[in-house]
Amino acid sequence: MSSIILAIVIGAAFGAVLDRIGATNPNWIGKMLTLTNLHLMKTILLAIGTGSVLMFAGQMLGLVDVGHMSVKAAYLGVFIGGLLLGTGWAMAGYCPGTGVCAAASGRKDAWFFIAGGLLGAAAYMVTYPAWKASGMLDNIAGGKVTLGTVPGSKFDGIWAAQGDILGILLGAAFIVIAFLLPERLAGRGEAIAPAE
């Protein structure tokens, strides 16, 4: 039961924050991906960095359970799937999480995105055996691995470097990049913010 309460609290907080940072707004996504306004990119980079530093520092202080980490496997299909997701993300301006939140915030096109998404997920469920047989889902570079070796973690590291310290350093790097990234990389003039 308590896990359901946590799901409601953390889920609602996540949805509300996605709404407030503009991630559920296809105009912000479009401006980020056309490199004409990188405000949302800065938000995302700072978020990854903040989350990383807090998590690994918390682990080092013994406040965060290392067992809560959940690392996904690396295989060729991750890259191909990433290419596909990127294509649809650019077309629609939504990814799975922001799509459901955008639909809830009243955007009509997001409901079409969800309907297409359900059909796409169903198509994968049906074609999964072919992908499995192709070898594209076979682990590469050790599969479920982190870059460094995180003490107490069940996941292996690619490098022997101490994973929690590396995590804090990389987190700091994400934060620095968030600050250094210019407001726009493509086109000229001031980066224009979407009206909404």
Binding site: K72, A73, Y75, G77, V78, F79, I80, G81, G82, L83, L84, L85, G86, T87, G88, W89, A90, M91, A92, G93, Y94, C95, P96, G99, D109, A110, F112, F113, I114, A115, G116, G117, L118, L119, G120, A121, A123, Y124, M125, Y128, W131, M136
Partner: peptide
């Protein structure tokens, strides 16, 4: 948006 959703979720499931 519908087509984009299809590609996004197919890709996401392939990627895991």
């Amino acid at each position: 948006a519908f087509l984009g959703g299809f590609i996004v979720l197919y890709g996401a499931r392939l990627a895991g």
